[in-house]
Design a binder for these strands. Sequence first.
DNA 1: CCGGTACGTCCAGTATTCGGACTTACTGGT
DNA 2: ACCAGTAAGTCCGAATACTGGACGTACCGG
Lengths: 152, 152
Amino acid sequence: MTTISAEPRVCSVARTLEIVGEKWALLAVREVFLGNRRFDEMVRKTGAPRDTMTARLKTLVAAGVLERRPVSEHPPRFEYRLTSAGLDLYPVIVSLMQWGDRYLAKGDAPPMVLTHHCGHPLGAVTSCASCGEPIVARDVRPTPRLEHTRDS
Amino acid sequence: MTTISAEPRVCSVARTLEIVGEKWALLAVREVFLGNRRFDEMVRKTGAPRDTMTARLKTLVAAGVLERRPVSEHPPRFEYRLTSAGLDLYPVIVSLMQWGDRYLAKGDAPPMVLTHHCGHPLGAVTSCASCGEPIVARDVRPTPRLEHTRDS
DNA sequence: CCGGTACGTCCAGTATTCGGACTTACTGGT
DNA sequence: ACCAGTAAGTCCGAATACTGGACGTACCGG
Protein backbone atom coordinates (compact mmCIF):
# COMPACT_ATOMS: atom_id res chain seq x y z
CA MET A 1 0.00 0.00 0.00
CA THR A 2 1.32 3.36 -1.01
CA THR A 3 0.24 6.77 0.08
CA ILE A 4 0.23 9.25 -2.73
CA SER A 5 -0.35 12.94 -2.52
CA ALA A 6 -2.78 14.27 -5.09
CA GLU A 7 -0.79 16.12 -7.63
CA PRO A 8 -2.73 19.13 -8.41
CA ARG A 9 -3.18 19.70 -4.70
CA VAL A 10 -6.67 19.21 -3.31
CA CYS A 11 -7.30 22.41 -1.45
CA SER A 12 -10.07 24.64 -0.24
CA VAL A 13 -8.39 27.70 -1.65
CA ALA A 14 -8.50 26.18 -5.12
CA ARG A 15 -12.09 25.06 -4.70
CA THR A 16 -13.16 28.49 -3.55
CA LEU A 17 -11.37 30.19 -6.40
CA GLU A 18 -13.22 28.02 -8.86
CA ILE A 19 -16.31 29.92 -7.82
CA VAL A 20 -15.18 33.40 -6.89
CA GLY A 21 -11.88 33.49 -8.74
CA GLU A 22 -13.21 34.27 -12.18
CA LYS A 23 -12.95 37.77 -13.46
CA TRP A 24 -15.58 40.13 -12.00
CA ALA A 25 -17.06 37.58 -9.63
CA LEU A 26 -15.79 39.19 -6.45
CA LEU A 27 -16.57 42.65 -7.73
CA ALA A 28 -20.17 41.61 -8.22
CA VAL A 29 -20.18 40.30 -4.67
CA ARG A 30 -18.61 43.54 -3.48
CA GLU A 31 -21.44 45.51 -5.02
CA VAL A 32 -24.04 43.43 -3.28
CA PHE A 33 -22.25 44.02 0.01
CA LEU A 34 -22.41 47.72 -0.75
CA GLY A 35 -26.14 47.45 -1.23
CA ASN A 36 -26.35 47.44 -5.01
CA ARG A 37 -28.37 44.39 -5.79
CA ARG A 38 -29.55 45.12 -9.29
CA PHE A 39 -28.06 43.98 -12.56
CA ASP A 40 -27.59 47.35 -14.21
CA GLU A 41 -26.12 48.85 -11.09
CA MET A 42 -23.54 46.09 -10.86
CA VAL A 43 -22.64 46.52 -14.49
CA ARG A 44 -22.19 50.27 -14.04
CA LYS A 45 -20.28 50.19 -10.78
CA THR A 46 -17.95 47.35 -11.69
CA GLY A 47 -17.37 48.13 -15.36
CA ALA A 48 -17.92 44.51 -16.35
CA PRO A 49 -19.40 43.70 -19.75
CA ARG A 50 -23.10 42.91 -19.41
CA ASP A 51 -22.50 39.52 -20.91
CA THR A 52 -19.85 38.58 -18.44
CA MET A 53 -21.91 39.87 -15.55
CA THR A 54 -24.77 37.66 -16.65
CA ALA A 55 -22.49 34.64 -16.65
CA ARG A 56 -20.94 35.46 -13.27
CA LEU A 57 -24.24 36.02 -11.56
CA LYS A 58 -25.39 32.71 -12.91
CA THR A 59 -22.46 30.80 -11.42
CA LEU A 60 -22.68 32.70 -8.15
CA VAL A 61 -26.35 31.84 -7.87
CA ALA A 62 -25.65 28.22 -8.78
CA ALA A 63 -22.92 28.07 -6.13
CA GLY A 64 -25.28 29.38 -3.48
CA VAL A 65 -23.48 32.67 -2.92
CA LEU A 66 -26.26 34.86 -4.25
CA GLU A 67 -29.96 34.43 -4.58
CA ARG A 68 -31.87 35.91 -7.50
CA ARG A 69 -35.28 37.04 -6.48
CA PRO A 70 -38.00 38.97 -8.25
CA VAL A 71 -38.87 42.29 -6.67
CA SER A 72 -41.60 43.21 -9.08
CA GLU A 73 -43.74 41.08 -11.32
CA HIS A 74 -44.97 43.57 -13.68
CA PRO A 75 -42.10 45.27 -14.88
CA PRO A 76 -40.14 42.06 -14.32
CA ARG A 77 -37.38 43.19 -12.00
CA PHE A 78 -34.92 41.21 -9.97
CA GLU A 79 -32.42 41.65 -7.24
CA TYR A 80 -29.49 39.59 -6.14
CA ARG A 81 -29.09 39.04 -2.43
CA LEU A 82 -26.38 37.42 -0.43
CA THR A 83 -27.17 34.05 1.04
CA SER A 84 -25.63 33.20 4.38
CA ALA A 85 -22.77 31.57 2.50
CA GLY A 86 -22.39 34.79 0.55
CA LEU A 87 -22.30 36.86 3.72
CA ASP A 88 -19.44 34.70 4.91
CA LEU A 89 -17.35 35.93 2.00
CA TYR A 90 -17.03 39.26 3.77
CA PRO A 91 -13.62 38.47 5.25
CA VAL A 92 -12.34 37.73 1.76
CA ILE A 93 -13.52 41.08 0.44
CA VAL A 94 -12.26 42.94 3.48
CA SER A 95 -8.84 41.37 3.37
CA LEU A 96 -8.45 42.11 -0.34
CA MET A 97 -9.48 45.68 0.31
CA GLN A 98 -7.12 46.01 3.23
CA TRP A 99 -4.21 44.80 1.15
CA GLY A 100 -5.04 47.19 -1.65
CA ASP A 101 -5.35 50.09 0.76
CA ARG A 102 -1.94 49.28 2.13
CA TYR A 103 0.02 48.55 -1.01
CA LEU A 104 -1.87 50.03 -3.91
CA ALA A 105 -2.95 53.42 -2.67
CA LYS A 106 -1.48 55.62 -5.32
CA GLY A 107 -0.08 58.30 -3.10
CA ASP A 108 -3.43 59.25 -1.69
CA ALA A 109 -5.73 57.85 0.92
CA PRO A 110 -7.89 54.79 0.25
CA PRO A 111 -10.76 55.48 -2.14
CA MET A 112 -13.35 54.12 0.24
CA VAL A 113 -13.52 53.89 3.98
CA LEU A 114 -15.70 51.41 5.80
CA THR A 115 -16.99 52.52 9.16
CA HIS A 116 -17.59 49.91 11.79
CA HIS A 117 -20.56 50.32 14.10
CA CYS A 118 -18.12 50.96 16.93
CA GLY A 119 -17.58 54.31 15.26
CA HIS A 120 -14.08 53.74 13.97
CA PRO A 121 -12.89 53.26 10.42
CA LEU A 122 -12.62 49.56 9.83
CA GLY A 123 -9.19 48.01 10.14
CA ALA A 124 -9.38 44.26 9.88
CA VAL A 125 -7.25 41.87 11.87
CA THR A 126 -7.25 38.17 11.14
CA SER A 127 -6.60 36.19 14.27
CA CYS A 128 -6.60 32.65 15.54
CA ALA A 129 -9.95 31.53 16.89
CA SER A 130 -8.30 29.44 19.60
CA CYS A 131 -5.69 31.74 21.07
CA GLY A 132 -6.79 35.10 19.74
CA GLU A 133 -3.37 36.04 18.43
CA PRO A 134 -3.11 37.77 15.06
CA ILE A 135 -2.19 35.24 12.43
CA VAL A 136 1.22 35.45 10.87
CA ALA A 137 2.27 33.02 8.16
CA ARG A 138 5.34 31.80 9.99
CA ASP A 139 3.29 30.74 13.01
CA VAL A 140 1.34 28.25 10.97
CA ARG A 141 2.29 24.75 9.85
CA PRO A 142 0.42 22.82 7.21
CA THR A 143 -0.75 19.35 8.16
CA PRO A 144 -1.84 17.81 4.89
CA ARG A 145 -4.13 14.86 5.14
CA LEU A 146 -3.42 11.70 3.26
CA GLU A 147 -5.63 12.17 0.29
CA HIS A 148 -5.68 8.69 -1.12
CA THR A 149 -4.32 5.32 -0.41
CA ARG A 150 -3.76 2.82 -3.10
CA ASP A 151 -2.75 -0.82 -3.10
CA SER A 152 0.38 -1.68 -4.97
CA MET B 1 -19.15 72.60 -9.33
CA THR B 2 -20.48 69.11 -9.44
CA THR B 3 -19.39 66.06 -7.52
CA ILE B 4 -19.42 62.94 -9.60
CA SER B 5 -18.83 59.42 -8.50
CA ALA B 6 -16.41 57.52 -10.69
CA GLU B 7 -18.41 55.09 -12.67
CA PRO B 8 -16.45 51.97 -12.66
CA ARG B 9 -15.95 52.36 -8.95
CA VAL B 10 -12.45 53.20 -7.77
CA CYS B 11 -11.79 50.57 -5.15
CA SER B 12 -8.99 48.72 -3.44
CA VAL B 13 -10.68 45.40 -3.99
CA ALA B 14 -10.62 45.97 -7.74
CA ARG B 15 -7.03 47.16 -7.67
CA THR B 16 -5.93 44.15 -5.69
CA LEU B 17 -7.75 41.78 -7.97
CA GLU B 18 -5.95 43.24 -10.94
CA ILE B 19 -2.85 41.66 -9.48
CA VAL B 20 -3.95 38.55 -7.66
CA GLY B 21 -7.28 37.99 -9.37
CA GLU B 22 -5.98 36.34 -12.49
CA LYS B 23 -6.24 32.65 -12.81
CA TRP B 24 -3.59 30.73 -10.83
CA ALA B 25 -2.09 33.80 -9.22
CA LEU B 26 -3.31 33.08 -5.72
CA LEU B 27 -2.55 29.40 -6.06
CA ALA B 28 1.03 30.26 -6.89
CA VAL B 29 1.11 32.43 -3.80
CA ARG B 30 -0.45 29.64 -1.77
CA GLU B 31 2.37 27.31 -2.80
CA VAL B 32 4.99 29.77 -1.70
CA PHE B 33 3.26 30.06 1.66
CA LEU B 34 3.42 26.28 1.87
CA GLY B 35 7.13 26.43 1.26
CA ASN B 36 7.28 25.45 -2.39
CA ARG B 37 9.25 28.19 -3.96
CA ARG B 38 10.39 26.60 -7.19
CA PHE B 39 8.83 26.86 -10.61
CA ASP B 40 8.34 23.19 -11.33
CA GLU B 41 6.94 22.54 -7.90
CA MET B 42 4.35 25.26 -8.33
CA VAL B 43 3.37 23.91 -11.70
CA ARG B 44 2.95 20.42 -10.28
CA LYS B 45 1.10 21.34 -7.14
CA THR B 46 -1.25 23.84 -8.72
CA GLY B 47 -1.88 22.15 -12.05
CA ALA B 48 -1.39 25.39 -13.94
CA PRO B 49 0.00 25.28 -17.48
CA ARG B 50 3.70 26.10 -17.39
CA ASP B 51 3.11 28.96 -19.74
CA THR B 52 0.53 30.56 -17.56
CA MET B 53 2.61 30.07 -14.46
CA THR B 54 5.47 31.89 -16.13
CA ALA B 55 3.18 34.81 -16.88
CA ARG B 56 1.70 34.89 -13.39
CA LEU B 57 5.03 34.80 -11.64
CA LYS B 58 6.14 37.64 -13.84
CA THR B 59 3.24 39.87 -12.82
CA LEU B 60 3.53 38.88 -9.17
CA VAL B 61 7.19 39.79 -9.18
CA ALA B 62 6.46 43.04 -11.00
CA ALA B 63 3.79 43.87 -8.44
CA GLY B 64 6.18 43.27 -5.57
CA VAL B 65 4.40 40.25 -4.15
CA LEU B 66 7.18 37.79 -4.92
CA GLU B 67 10.87 38.12 -5.41
CA ARG B 68 12.73 35.93 -7.88
CA ARG B 69 16.15 35.09 -6.68
CA PRO B 70 18.84 32.76 -7.97
CA VAL B 71 19.75 29.92 -5.62
CA SER B 72 22.42 28.41 -7.79
CA GLU B 73 24.46 29.88 -10.58
CA HIS B 74 25.66 26.87 -12.26
CA PRO B 75 22.77 24.89 -12.92
CA PRO B 76 20.82 28.14 -13.14
CA ARG B 77 18.13 27.68 -10.51
CA PHE B 78 15.73 30.15 -8.98
CA GLU B 79 13.30 30.45 -6.18
CA TYR B 80 10.39 32.74 -5.57
CA ARG B 81 10.05 34.22 -2.12
CA LEU B 82 7.35 36.31 -0.55
CA THR B 83 8.17 39.94 -0.02
CA SER B 84 6.67 41.62 3.02
CA ALA B 85 3.78 42.72 0.82
CA GLY B 86 3.38 39.11 -0.21
CA LEU B 87 3.35 37.93 3.37
CA ASP B 88 0.49 40.32 4.01
CA LEU B 89 -1.63 38.39 1.56
CA TYR B 90 -1.91 35.63 4.13
CA PRO B 91 -5.30 36.79 5.42
CA VAL B 92 -6.65 36.61 1.88
CA ILE B 93 -5.49 33.03 1.45
CA VAL B 94 -6.70 32.02 4.88
CA SER B 95 -10.13 33.51 4.42
CA LEU B 96 -10.56 31.84 1.05
CA MET B 97 -9.52 28.56 2.58
CA GLN B 98 -11.83 28.99 5.52
CA TRP B 99 -14.79 29.64 3.24
CA GLY B 100 -14.00 26.60 1.15
CA ASP B 101 -13.64 24.42 4.22
CA ARG B 102 -17.03 25.56 5.38
CA TYR B 103 -19.03 25.47 2.18
CA LEU B 104 -17.19 23.28 -0.26
CA ALA B 105 -16.06 20.33 1.82
CA LYS B 106 -17.59 17.54 -0.16
CA GLY B 107 -18.95 15.53 2.71
CA ASP B 108 -15.57 14.96 4.25
CA ALA B 109 -13.23 16.96 6.37
CA PRO B 110 -11.10 19.74 4.89
CA PRO B 111 -8.26 18.46 2.72
CA MET B 112 -5.64 20.38 4.63
CA VAL B 113 -5.42 21.56 8.19
CA LEU B 114 -3.22 24.42 9.28
CA THR B 115 -1.87 24.22 12.77
CA HIS B 116 -1.23 27.43 14.63
CA HIS B 117 1.77 27.65 16.91
CA CYS B 118 -0.65 27.74 19.85
CA GLY B 119 -1.21 24.08 19.11
CA HIS B 120 -4.73 24.30 17.78
CA PRO B 121 -5.95 23.86 14.24
CA LEU B 122 -6.24 27.28 12.71
CA GLY B 123 -9.65 28.86 12.65
CA ALA B 124 -9.48 32.42 11.45
CA VAL B 125 -11.59 35.25 12.78
CA THR B 126 -11.61 38.63 11.13
CA SER B 127 -12.21 41.34 13.63
CA CYS B 128 -12.20 45.10 13.96
CA ALA B 129 -8.84 46.52 14.94
CA SER B 130 -10.45 49.24 17.03
CA CYS B 131 -13.04 47.42 19.08
CA GLY B 132 -11.95 43.82 18.65
CA GLU B 133 -15.38 42.59 17.68
CA PRO B 134 -15.68 40.04 14.88
CA ILE B 135 -16.65 41.80 11.68
CA VAL B 136 -20.10 41.19 10.28
CA ALA B 137 -21.17 42.84 7.04
CA ARG B 138 -24.22 44.52 8.54
CA ASP B 139 -22.14 46.31 11.16
CA VAL B 140 -20.22 48.18 8.51
CA ARG B 141 -21.20 51.28 6.54
CA PRO B 142 -19.37 52.45 3.46
CA THR B 143 -18.20 56.03 3.44
CA PRO B 144 -17.13 56.66 -0.11
CA ARG B 145 -14.84 59.58 -0.65
CA LEU B 146 -15.57 62.16 -3.26
CA GLU B 147 -13.35 60.95 -6.00
CA HIS B 148 -13.38 63.93 -8.27
CA THR B 149 -14.78 67.36 -8.42
CA ARG B 150 -15.43 69.07 -11.65
CA ASP B 151 -16.43 72.62 -12.60
CA SER B 152 -19.62 73.05 -14.53
C1' DC C 1 -46.72 58.07 -28.98
C1' DC C 2 -42.08 59.06 -27.41
C1' DG C 3 -38.27 58.71 -24.42
C1' DG C 4 -36.24 56.38 -20.77
C1' DT C 5 -35.10 52.41 -17.64
C1' DA C 6 -34.24 47.57 -16.43
C1' DC C 7 -32.47 43.14 -17.67
C1' DG C 8 -30.85 40.68 -20.60
C1' DT C 9 -29.25 38.24 -25.34
C1' DC C 10 -26.47 38.05 -29.64
C1' DC C 11 -22.52 38.68 -32.23
C1' DA C 12 -17.96 39.13 -34.00
C1' DG C 13 -13.28 40.31 -32.71
C1' DT C 14 -9.65 39.91 -29.39
C1' DA C 15 -7.18 38.03 -25.54
C1' DT C 16 -6.18 34.15 -22.43
C1' DT C 17 -5.60 29.64 -21.33
C1' DC C 18 -4.68 24.94 -22.41
C1' DG C 19 -1.75 20.74 -23.03
C1' DG C 20 2.01 19.01 -25.00
C1' DA C 21 6.35 19.05 -27.29
C1' DC C 22 10.71 21.14 -27.30
C1' DT C 23 15.12 23.67 -25.56
C1' DT C 24 19.01 24.59 -22.66
C1' DA C 25 21.88 23.58 -19.00
C1' DC C 26 23.31 20.98 -15.88
C1' DT C 27 24.11 16.36 -12.47
C1' DG C 28 24.70 11.67 -11.39
C1' DG C 29 25.27 6.80 -12.64
C1' DT C 30 27.62 3.08 -15.40
C1' DA D 1 31.36 8.80 -23.12
C1' DC D 2 26.67 7.93 -22.85
C1' DC D 3 22.18 7.88 -21.01
C1' DA D 4 18.52 9.26 -17.87
C1' DG D 5 16.73 12.71 -15.12
C1' DT D 6 15.69 17.45 -13.29
C1' DA D 7 14.87 22.41 -13.49
C1' DA D 8 13.13 26.34 -15.71
C1' DG D 9 11.33 27.92 -19.22
C1' DT D 10 9.70 28.76 -24.44
C1' DC D 11 6.79 27.78 -28.50
C1' DC D 12 2.77 26.30 -30.77
C1' DG D 13 -1.99 25.56 -32.44
C1' DA D 14 -6.54 24.70 -30.61
C1' DA D 15 -10.04 25.78 -27.32
C1' DT D 16 -12.14 28.91 -24.21
C1' DA D 17 -13.20 33.38 -22.18
C1' DC D 18 -13.71 38.17 -22.31
C1' DT D 19 -14.90 42.48 -24.67
C1' DG D 20 -17.80 46.32 -26.48
C1' DG D 21 -21.61 47.40 -28.80
C1' DA D 22 -25.99 46.68 -30.95
C1' DC D 23 -30.36 44.77 -30.29
C1' DG D 24 -34.83 42.86 -27.98
C1' DT D 25 -38.51 43.02 -24.73
C1' DA D 26 -41.27 44.74 -21.13
C1' DC D 27 -42.76 48.36 -18.75
C1' DC D 28 -43.59 53.48 -16.98
C1' DG D 29 -44.56 58.45 -17.21
C1' DG D 30 -45.67 62.50 -19.72
